[in-house]
Design a protein around this nucleic acid. Sequence first.
DNA 1: GTCTATAAAAGGATAGAC
DNA 2: GTCTATCCTTTTATAGAC
Lengths: 217, 217
Amino acid sequence: MGPQAATARDRHEDVTEERSAPSKRDAILDAARRVFLEAGYGAASMDAIAREAGVSKQTIYAHFGAKDALFGAIMVARADHFLEPLPEAVGDAPDVAAALDGLSRRYLEVLLAPEAVARFRVVMAESGRFPELAEVFYRSGPRRAADRLAAYLAALDAGGVLRVPDPEMAAGQFLGALRGDIFIRYLLGLGEPPTEADIDRTVAHAVGAFLGAHRAR
Amino acid sequence: MGPQAATARDRHEDVTEERSAPSKRDAILDAARRVFLEAGYGAASMDAIAREAGVSKQTIYAHFGAKDALFGAIMVARADHFLEPLPEAVGDAPDVAAALDGLSRRYLEVLLAPEAVARFRVVMAESGRFPELAEVFYRSGPRRAADRLAAYLAALDAGGVLRVPDPEMAAGQFLGALRGDIFIRYLLGLGEPPTEADIDRTVAHAVGAFLGAHRAR
DNA sequence: GTCTATAAAAGGATAGAC
DNA sequence: GTCTATCCTTTTATAGAC
């Protein structure tokens, strides 16, 4: 093997191909993600995952051992990416209204992405069987978003821009207002996804109400 | 049979007992409700329901025909009771703050009842398989609560008490703020249920913010 | 590592007696 | 209407060849 190959062999010792071909392991993970998120844990069969990945069932068991281990690998691995694009929007905005507006749009964008909704639904349904998974999901997703917003609101209060005596509560309720009815409908699989105009109205109303409620005296 | 028996025999023709003993049918419905809500549709077995009800599996099939029919009977039957105690709180209250306060407490009380949370979770998880069930649940639960509140807010706006130009949106976002973080945590099965003090703080904050945002000029 | 074939168990639904 | 006993399909998991 060539000299630069050293950086790429963090998993295998005896690989012969120099280009890291899409490994069966990754194919399995990808297929499992799709099948689990679409069907839920119980209704997803290992046969379906094997078929989707183009491998045999035994190959899956050789890699992951059992169904619940595979499920855990999928759900935890992707939990980090949830709501990751949120923080940048807070610090750079010229004024408060624009900052809240931008943050709200990113939040709804992430929250209403089909994969995020499916993930939420599955984690929720299986929270009894996988409690630690629900915990990780909560902390890396909803909790993190609320903490970031709370920190921003606390800074606004300290700077005298707004009056926010209880930033944690205010952050939680603001994000709750943003979710409003839309998210429930989405989780229940009802009706059409919200249009751009719906988003505009929702964000404008939530931000306006928040600024009205917390304006400095 | 006696003359008064006529009113009670809307289902049976050949009953011999005069007191309506807890029928097997009701025992099945009750057991099915418990098992379905605890385990979810997929993980709930007909064997478990039969055991819990103290009857044989065949008795269940004689009454309901199939698993999905039994599930539908359970979930739809109880959907009416969801949020039923809400409307009274609106009209009688002396002032707006007290009305919103009372309504908020009832809403959270109903929403955080263990059975309501379990129902929400199950309907959500099975919304793909039973779309019409999700629709009925939504309309009789979340939607109804939001509509009632919106009508009240529209009346306040018309009376000049508050300024609420978009009552539907305001109602949805107020209820969303009320759910805030608590409901998500609850759905994910995390941590302790909220204490009385938590409820007090949550309601006070949401009502205070709402009044601040929508006060008449 | 990967495949084909199979074991072992669970669960939805039905047959037939009473 | 109700029970016991059974069928048949699906599904997780494993054995053994290559």
